[in-house]
Design a protein around this nucleic acid. Sequence first.
DNA 1: CTGAAAGCGCTTACAG
DNA 2: CTGAAAGCGCTTACAG
Lengths: 366, 366
Amino acid sequence: MPRPRKPKTQRAATLADVGRAAGVSAMAASAVLNSVKTSSRISEETRQRILEAAAKLQYRPNAAARALLHRRMNTIGIAAILDENELNHYFLALFNGVLAGATHFEQNTTVFALHDWSNDTRRLDSVCDGRIDGLIMFAPTYDAAVAKTLPKHTPFVTIHANTPLEGTVNIESDEEAGANAMVEHLIAKGHRRIMHIAGPKGFVGADRRVAGYRKALRAHHIKFDPALLVHSQFIDFHGYRAMKTWLEENAGQPLPHAVFCANDGMAIGAMQALAESGLRVPEDVSVCGFDDTLASRASVPQLTTVRQPLVEMGRKAAEILLAQIGTLKDVQVPASPVVMPVEVVERASVGRCPAGDRVVPALARV
Amino acid sequence: MPRPRKPKTQRAATLADVGRAAGVSAMAASAVLNSVKTSSRISEETRQRILEAAAKLQYRPNAAARALLHRRMNTIGIAAILDENELNHYFLALFNGVLAGATHFEQNTTVFALHDWSNDTRRLDSVCDGRIDGLIMFAPTYDAAVAKTLPKHTPFVTIHANTPLEGTVNIESDEEAGANAMVEHLIAKGHRRIMHIAGPKGFVGADRRVAGYRKALRAHHIKFDPALLVHSQFIDFHGYRAMKTWLEENAGQPLPHAVFCANDGMAIGAMQALAESGLRVPEDVSVCGFDDTLASRASVPQLTTVRQPLVEMGRKAAEILLAQIGTLKDVQVPASPVVMPVEVVERASVGRCPAGDRVVPALARV
DNA sequence: CTGAAAGCGCTTACAG
DNA sequence: CTGAAAGCGCTTACAG
């Protein structure tokens, strides 16, 4: 059985170690290893000796020492609510985008997992201590008062901020237009009795989708039916429970033609609840989501949804943040908010509205 | 329209700034802010003045300066192949685990996204420069020769390493037992004609699952049929394509009773291919996966699968790494490999084997 | 052109 | 008990 590596790892070599090994000063070693012009004065033979010593000692310029000098860690931070027990495709998409953007400019990315925006303020604060050059917040729900306490020496960018932070660029998408287009699409497929499982009241992301939903109904003279609007949370399980509860409470009532969910996870949850009542998607009921996360392609049938360019939004956030930090000289910091376009993506979960009215089955099949 | 924050952020306050503002030396400020015993000598009034100055200036001890002193960044790294266009629930689960473990011990986590283990060696190398105290690699496929070039001054832990790195703890799970238990479960449900969509040949994760599959067949005197073993890749789309191709090439042949896929994503892909041929899961064909990632609950029907405790494995990796670094004094570094238990999780995608033999439908319905 | 020194921000060990 | 100094590892600006 292989023995584990000894706990005490050897110390990393310093410039002084390299110099000593090569019989030169630390400074000479530094000059050679950074290929400074002045190193042209150093003989080729010495240069080789230094390079060999550095390779042999696995020398790497110490990041902390460099950061101290340059006041820059070449690292950006991400703060997000991250619960290890929940599906979070939204996070995964944004994260991939930020990572791609940061990596492209040779910057590292550190992730801070929060449980709660209000209570974890101090944790975020404490992290603005030079270990990151700037911070991107995913869907923060700070209120304005708390936001004021954020450190002034660290630049921020937010994505989908619930209340914009003063002096901070917020990146969002045209959610109302997206919801409106989605419901227009349902109506074009013949659906009239359209249910909406919304996000929590008071969250702009939820409210804007409701607004788009109602706008589309209005445009087609479909009377808004409060019984068809249910508020839930942006989490798979809550979509399931909202749909399940609704079906139980509305047994014998007319079945909706289509269910528009405020995000993909909720739509998948709703599909599961429908399946448990023996209802097929899209033959009996059409279902659609919002976001176009990877979840929308992982479901069977694949989900018709509104695409928000999440990866792109993450990448853009990284770019804007790096511009603010000053790492990217040639990128202009845009005015806030930056609004990204959305589009309806047709997949398999929405069909033509079936002929004849159906009724919510009385008993769940389970 | 709100104006964006000015690109030039103000400099962070230093201990000297705090001292100056409070009319004391930087050292006195340091003593108070670190609540060193000696600070008891400092008058309560002075203490308050220092605390106020620090708060007002939003002072935070500079992380780089501290790291330079302590030779510790309080940050661990994660290296993983991460393609922004692919589903990666496996990463998400491990990542959540590492993050939870690191956060619990007040350590930060930096993620390095790689494209390729062989070609990105230099990138990984360059990152072992003090910006992380240790590194966790997700499913690395280094060969032994390359592994030798890894820096000696940084501790590593691997999860699912394809070839164990010398002197490095590897965390894995009992994949062969898991595959065996899954196929035993299928056989218990009456399935005999069991297809396996495997991972790429030569990868231990794939080979061990194939071994478990064949072992279960053997135990029940089911003759191994090479036509029912297909090698593919650990990616959703490849599962889809493998199933699709197999159905096309085997039109008119007996339909498998069940399809055991080497991971959850592949199983979902296979379900989509089956759906396109008009075959229902589990009524016509049972399907199962491996991993128990969040994907297995996001599909309709939910996936029967083999659970690997991925979150727990990530958490354990963090803990072992911190023990090696020396951050955790009271945790023993275990011998390698650490093998985690697996279990079959029954959900909805596996049913009893239907009576009567069916045949692969000739034409895809699409 | 080269090498010694200063300094990034912090803390620890050591004189006064 | 207090305050000045040394040093973590590096690079830049400045004497020689």
